[in-house]
Design a protein around this nucleic acid. Structure first.
Lengths: 216, 216
DNA sequence: CGCATCTTGAAACGATCGGTGCAAGATCTG
DNA sequence: CAGATCTTGCACCGATCGTTTCAAGATGCG
């Protein structure tokens, strides 16, 4: 049981990711992580560092697993912006339907636990969300949306992704989730009913979006 | 400091609710609850019972606070289903904009932490979600939606509510949240482009929506 | 083989977890 | 006032938290 490593590092990381995914950062105790990975405490710490570092590596592992799926779904040629949103959300639905992974979404669970994360964890979660958002905007532009429409639809698709994760956690059925996703893909561009021209909306991506004030 | 109660029970419960709201169930330690409420451990336990009971009473307090706002917003006469969705989400936006309460939504934070809750907590969260869903359906029917449309739009409005809570937690600006809410209110009913007739969708509210299988 | 290197399991660290016991003392009842 | 009742602060409980230490032993290199 000693000498050279007795386990596959990437497999262990995958299992650790599942523990964080299912339990969230705070409830993912070292004991649950050792049980989930099959590793001893020594191996966990010597291989991945402390809990915060393991969490960050789990986030990277998550991105490395699902980012390509989103990228592939968005990179194809889409006839219109709605098709982009539908393709994006279908990847999310597929992941949620996968019985071999926990409910919801690691990023969403982590986002709701922001106060429990350290600065590095928060920054990484935020960066992953912004990354997908940028990916969506590019794909929407490529599908013929103008800049404003792309920004708005990217935000809505992102929001729907988060809602699917929450509802999935609360036990909603895959049919109900599919209904939500289909509806999100039907969101029309925002036009003024009187003139038919676009109504200005605040969907710009200011970096000032991050609040610094601390709420109670 | 002894004799008769030295604090207002409802005020203390309000503060405890804020602690659960901000930190989530697992990170809401007894120390944080005592600090947030200003009560000693003895007073906390003798007044509210253990942590799980206090959590349930906080959920009730949350419902008692915000349910009437939703009820009032939905009870008015709305010209069409979209107006119902808009009114519902406006209440959510107002709550998120309130600087005196934490980010997001207690129900959403609790839903993402389902594995950390006991059976009673999970059931209560689930019941609160179902309650709002039923309220939305009734209001949508009253606004002229047919049964299927009401079920679908209620689900989507609920989903958007959850997404606003998550994005708020991740630091998105109130302008961005308002954009998401406005887009959700624009979701059209689902029609077949060829025939113009409604396309059957699985938005029925089966009680079988609750999964019993346990994911990893 | 001899020795350095590495991994592993187990024990232990102080800190914090949720929860309880209890004596001090203020209030209420008579 | 006398005694019962109640609240409060504080100490303390065992369990678990994240983390470190360390000896035992398998491996690789000379």
């Amino acid at each position: 049981m000693v000498g050279r490593k007795q386990f596959d590092v990437d497999e262990a990381l995958r299992h650790a990711m599942h523990v964080f995914w299912r339990w969230g950062y705070s409830e993912a105790s070292i004991d649950r992580l050792t049980e989930g990975t099959g590793l001893g405490r020594s191996s966990l710490y010597s291989t991945f560092g402390d809990k915060s570092a393991l969490f960050r590596k789990s986030l990277q592992r998550y991105e490395q697993t699902y980012h390509p799926l989103y990228s592939q779904a968005l990179s194809g040629s889409h006839p219109n912006p709605s098709a982009v949103v539908a393709a994006y959300l279908q990847v999310t639905l597929n992941r949620i339907a996968d019985p071999t992974v926990p409910d919801g979404c690691l990023v969403t669970v982590s986002a709701t636990q922001f106060p429990a994360l350290d600065a590095e964890g928060r920054a990484m979660v935020r960066a992953m969300i912004d990354g997908v958002r940028a990916m969506l905007e590019q794909a929407l532009l490529a599908a013929g949306a103008d800049e404003q429409e792309a920004a708005e639809l990217a935000l809505c698709a992102l929001a729907t992704n988060k809602s699917l994760a929450v509802l999935s956690r609360a036990g909603f059925s895959s049919e109900e989730l599919a209904t939500v996703a289909a509806a999100a893909a039907r969101i029309p561009q925002d036009t003024d009913p009187a003139t038919g021209s676009r109504v200005p909306r605040a969907a710009h991506r200011g970096r000032g979006a991050v609040r610094h004030r601390q709420k109670p």
